[in-house]
Amino acid sequence: TETREFDNEEEARKEAERLRRKGQDVQIRKKGNRWELRRT
Rank of each mutant, 00 (worst) to 15 (best):
T1L: 12
T1G: 12
T1P: 13
T1N: 12
E2W: 15
E2Y: 14
E2K: 10
E2H: 12
E2P: 09
E2V: 13
T3P: 11
T3F: 12
T3Q: 08
T3H: 09
R4G: 05
R4N: 07
R4W: 15
R4E: 08
R4T: 11
E5A: 08
E5Y: 15
E5Q: 09
E5M: 14
E5V: 14
E5D: 09
E5T: 13
F6G: 00
F6A: 02
F6C: 02
F6S: 01
F6N: 00
D7R: 06
D7H: 06
D7W: 07
D7E: 09
D7M: 07
D7S: 07
D7Q: 06
N8V: 05
N8E: 05
N8F: 07
N8L: 06
N8R: 05
N8H: 05
N8G: 04
N8C: 08
N8W: 03
N8I: 05
E9A: 06
E9F: 15
E9G: 03
E9L: 14
E9V: 09
E9I: 13
E9M: 08
E9K: 06
E10L: 09
E10S: 07
E10F: 11
E10T: 08
E10A: 10
E11D: 14
E11G: 04
E11L: 06
E11A: 09
E11V: 04
E11P: 02
A12H: 00
A12Q: 00
A12L: 02
A12M: 03
A12G: 02
A12T: 02
A12K: 00
R13Q: 12
R13K: 11
R13D: 05
R13M: 13
K14Y: 10
K14L: 11
K14P: 00
K14G: 07
K14T: 11
K14V: 11
K14A: 14
E15P: 00
E15M: 08
E15H: 07
E15L: 04
E15Y: 08
E15I: 05
E15F: 07
E15G: 02
A16D: 00
A16N: 00
A16P: 00
A16V: 06
E17M: 12
E17D: 11
E17T: 09
E17S: 09
E17A: 12
R18S: 08
R18F: 09
R18H: 08
R18V: 09
R18W: 07
L19K: 00
L19I: 04
L19W: 09
L19S: 03
L19N: 01
R20M: 07
R20A: 07
R20L: 06
R20H: 05
R20E: 03
R20T: 05
R20D: 00
R20Q: 06
R21Q: 10
R21G: 09
R21L: 12
R21P: 00
R21M: 12
R21H: 07
R21K: 10
R21V: 07
R21N: 09
K22N: 13
K22F: 12
K22L: 15
K22T: 12
K22H: 11
K22A: 13
G23S: 02
G23M: 03
G23T: 01
G23D: 03
G23K: 03
G23Y: 04
G23H: 04
G23V: 01
G23L: 02
G23N: 03
G23R: 02
Q24E: 13
Q24A: 10
Q24W: 15
Q24T: 08
Q24K: 06
Q24V: 15
Q24D: 09
Q24L: 15
Q24I: 15
Q24Y: 15
D25L: 13
D25P: 09
D25R: 12
D25V: 14
D25M: 14
D25N: 13
V26L: 04
V26I: 08
V26Q: 01
V26W: 14
V26S: 04
V26P: 02
V26Y: 10
Q27P: 00
Q27D: 08
Q27N: 07
Q27A: 08
Q27V: 14
Q27S: 11
Q27M: 11
Q27E: 14
Q27L: 11
Q27H: 10
I28T: 02
I28S: 01
I28G: 01
I28D: 00
R29C: 15
R29M: 13
R29K: 10
R29Q: 11
K30W: 04
K30A: 06
K30N: 05
K30R: 11
K30M: 06
K30I: 04
K30E: 03
K31G: 02
K31P: 02
K31E: 06
K31V: 14
K31S: 08
G32V: 00
G32E: 05
G32T: 00
G32D: 06
G32R: 02
G32W: 00
G32S: 01
N33D: 14
N33F: 04
N33P: 13
N33E: 10
N33K: 05
N33Y: 04
N33G: 08
N33L: 05
R34G: 08
R34C: 14
R34N: 08
R34Q: 08
R34P: 00
R34F: 08
W35S: 00
W35E: 01
W35Q: 00
W35P: 03
E36T: 04
E36A: 02
E36N: 00
E36H: 03
E36Y: 11
L37M: 04
L37C: 11
L37E: 04
R38S: 13
R38M: 14
R38L: 15
R38A: 12
R38Q: 12
R39H: 15
R39V: 15
R39S: 15
R39P: 14
R39T: 15
R39L: 15
T40E: 08
T40R: 12
